[in-house]
Each structure stands twice: as C-alpha cells, then as structure tokens.
C-alpha cells in the first residue's frame, strides 16, 4: 500500500515537472483571478469561419467526419465543412513565405491539437497545406479554395 502511495507521489511530481515545461511556448491570459494557459492559435483569413468559433471548437470533428463520408462515398461536394478549406483558409506562412505543413508546431490544426493532447491522423493522407503550383517561370504560388476545380 505504501509502495503504491510512493508511486503516485512520484508520478505527480513527474507530471508537475513535465507539464509546465511543455506549456512554456503558450501565452498566458488572465481570466478573472485565474491565470490560464492558452494555445497559440493562428487566425484564419476573412471575417469569420464557416460557423461560429464556439461551434467549430466543439463540433468541427463531427462536421468534418460527416461531410467526409458524404463527399467520398456519395460525391457530394461544395459543402462548407471541408478539411481542404480549413487547411487553405487557416494556412500559416513559414519563414520561406510558404504555408507550413503539419510538421511545424505553428500549423493551425497542430497548435490546438498539441495543446489539447489529441492526436489526429488526418494528415497521414491529406495535404496539410494548400496546393503549391509552380509556374513555367519558376514562381511558386498557393492556390486557395474550392474554386481551383
């Protein structure tokens, strides 16, 4: 019994040591009397998202999942909850002026998912940044939005 208690204490100490270390890159914010660590989420383009931010925060996975099955299996396109659109609108520019991939901790999806410690496998198959087209002149550019097709 005492062994178990020692173990729990050890784990607690370990967590206390590790967790703030992880959160150092995260901005701190005062809400009332509490100091809260928040994820550094890059803003998307335009005025607003396809739905309210609150709704998106809680339900984006359900919406994406639902629409993904409709699109893949029935061919329904042009609806608002498209992963491709998330990636395009929320693209974050890296030091080379090109959108970063999910390999970068600044990537929109990753910033929050790292914070929430929720792992996703979307980008094992899906592109994590907008298509990059190279012109004959060698100039790289980024194509955004459904209008490409």
């Amino acid at each position: 019994m005492s062994l178990r208690r020692i173990f729990i204490v050890l784990v607690a100490v370990f967590m206390a040591w590790v967790v703030p270390g992880e959160a150092q890159t995260v901005p701190e914010k005062k809400i009332g009397n509490n100091s809260v660590l928040l994820p550094a989420i890059p803003r998307g383009q335009g005025d607003h998202c396809v739905a309210d931010a609150d709704f998106m925060r809680r339900n984006h996975m359900t919406m994406l999942m639902h629409q993904r099955d409709e699109t893949v299996r029935q061919g329904i396109r042009g609806k608002p909850f498209s992963l491709k659109e998330c990636v395009a609108c929320h693209a974050v520019e890296g030091p080379d002026a090109m959108p970063v991939t999910v390999a970068s901790p600044q990537h929109f999806c990753r910033a929050c998912h790292d914070y929430a410690a929720v792992s996703i496998d979307c980008f094992q198959c899906h592109a994590s940044r907008p298509d990059v087209v190279t012109d004959a002149g060698g100039q790289g550019g980024v194509v955004r939005g459904a209008a490409r097709e």
């Binding site: 396809v50 739905a51 909850f81 012109d135 939005g145």
Partner: peptide
C-alpha cells in the same frame, strides 16, 4: 448550424497564364 460561406477571393488568385 449557422453555415456561412467564406470567400477567399479566388478569382484574383487564379493564375491568369494557366487560365
């Protein structure tokens, strides 16, 4: 679901040469 279409200004970005 308060779906609002987001406009990304595609026409401007569409590469004229390619078009």
């Amino acid at each position: 679901m308060s779906g609002k279409m987001k406009h990304t200004g595609i026409a401007a970005e569409f590469n004229p040469a390619r078009r």
